[in-house]
C-alpha cells in the first residue's frame, strides 16, 4: 500500500529526514517510535503534504501513485488521513458542514454524487458513537473550545467518517488521560480492516497497549535505525531511548 524509499526532507535548509525506508501493507499496523527531535512529526507532515517541508530525495508510492506529486487534498482523496498532533481550531466553521464538504469533495474525486442528507446523518450518528463523541460537539465549530481529549476524539471521528485507506496517527496519545486514550484506541481498533493500514507515531509505549502494532520501528536522527515486532516497544519502554543511541553510536 505504502512504500517509502530513501526519503530525505528538510525545513529551512535543515535536513530532518535522512533516508527513510518503510513498507506498509494493507491490514497492518506499524508503530514509529523515537525520541524528541528524531523526525517523527516531520515524517507525518511530509506524507500529508505540508508545504514548508522540502523533499530533497526519495519517493513515496501510495497504491501505485507518486504520493509526493499530489496536493494535500488529493492525498486525502486517495485515502491518506493524518490525525493531527495539534488539531486546528476553526471558529465559525461547523464540524458537520466541514465534514459534509470534505466527504462530498472526496466523493466527487471518485466520480460519485453528493451524499444524501439522510444517509449522511445516519453516518454521523453511527461514527459519533464509535468515539463516544457527544452530538453537540459535532454541531459546534471545528475544535473550537474543545478539550484536549475532545480534539483527539474529533480527529478519530473525522477518520471514521472519511474511511481512509491509510491512517497516520501523529502523537494521538499526547495529552490524553487514560480514559480518553482507551476511547481513542478503541475507535481506531474498530476501524481496522484487512483493507486499510495504520501508522501510529508515538513517543511512549503506552498507546501500544491499546493499539497493538504488527511492526515497531525506531526513528533516530532522521532514519529508521531498528525495526521489530511489538516486543521492541516494550524493550524501549524498559531501557529508554539511550540504548538505541548507544547502539547507533557504536
Amino acid at each position: 500500500m505504502l512504500l517509502i524509499k530513501n526519503l530525505h526532507a528538510s525545513i529551512d535548509g535543515k535536513e530532518i529526514l535522512r533516508g527513510i525506508n518503510l513498507e506498509v501493507k494493507a491490514g497492518e499496523v506499524h508503530a514509529i517510535m523515537g525520541p524528541n527531535g528524531s523526525g517523527k512529526s516531520t515524517l507525518s507532515s511530509v506524507l500529508a503534504g505540508r508545504e514548508e517541508y522540502e523533499v530533497t530525495a526519495g519517493e513515496v508510492i501510495f497504491n501505485g501513485k507518486e504520493l509526493l506529486e499530489l496536493s494535500p487534498e488529493d492525498r486525502a482523496r486517495e485515502g491518506v488521513f493524518l490525525a493531527f498532533q495539534y488539531p486546528i481550531e476553526i471558529p465559525g466553521v461547523s464540524n458537520i458542514n466541514f465534514l459534509k464538504t470534505a466527504l462530498n469533495e472526496i466523493r466527487a474525486y471518485k466520480g460519485l454524487g453528493p451524499i444524501e442528507a439522510k444517509e449522511f446523518l445516519k453516518l454521523v450518528k453511527e461514527k459519533q458513537a464509535l468515539v463516544e463523541l457527544q452530538g453537540s460537539l459535532a454541531n459546534r465549530s471545528v475544535n473550537e473550545g474543545f478539550s484536549g481529549g475532545e480534539k483527539k476524539r474529533n480527529e478519530i471521528f473525522q477518520m471514521a467518517m472519511l474511511e481512509p485507506k491509510l491512517a497516520i496517527l501523529d502523537e494521538t496519545d499526547s495529552g490524553l488521560d487514560i480514559d480518553a486514550l482507551r476511547i481513542v484506541a478503541n475507535g481506531v481498533n474498530k476501524l481496522k480492516s484487512p483493507d486499510n493500514a495504520t501508522i501510529v507515531i508515538t513517543h511512549y509505549q503506552r498507546l501500544l497497549d491499546y493499539i497493538v502494532p504488527d511492526f515497531v520501528h525506531v526513528l533516530y536522527k532522521g532514519q529508521i535505525v531498528k525495526s521489530g515486532t511489538k516486543e521492541l516497544a516494550l524493550e524501549l519502554e524498559e531501557k529508554g531511548y539511550d540504548f538505541i543511541k548507544e547502539e547507533v553510536g557504536a
Binding site: 508545504e51 494535500p72 464538504t101 469533495e105 473525522q158
Partner: peptide, 21 residues
Amino acid sequence: FYLRARGLSEASAKKLLMHAF
C-alpha cells in the same frame, strides 16, 4: 492546510474560512 488535509480543495477551504469570518 487542516481543511485540505481532509480533502477540501484549496479554493473551497478558503471559501469556507471567509464565510466563517
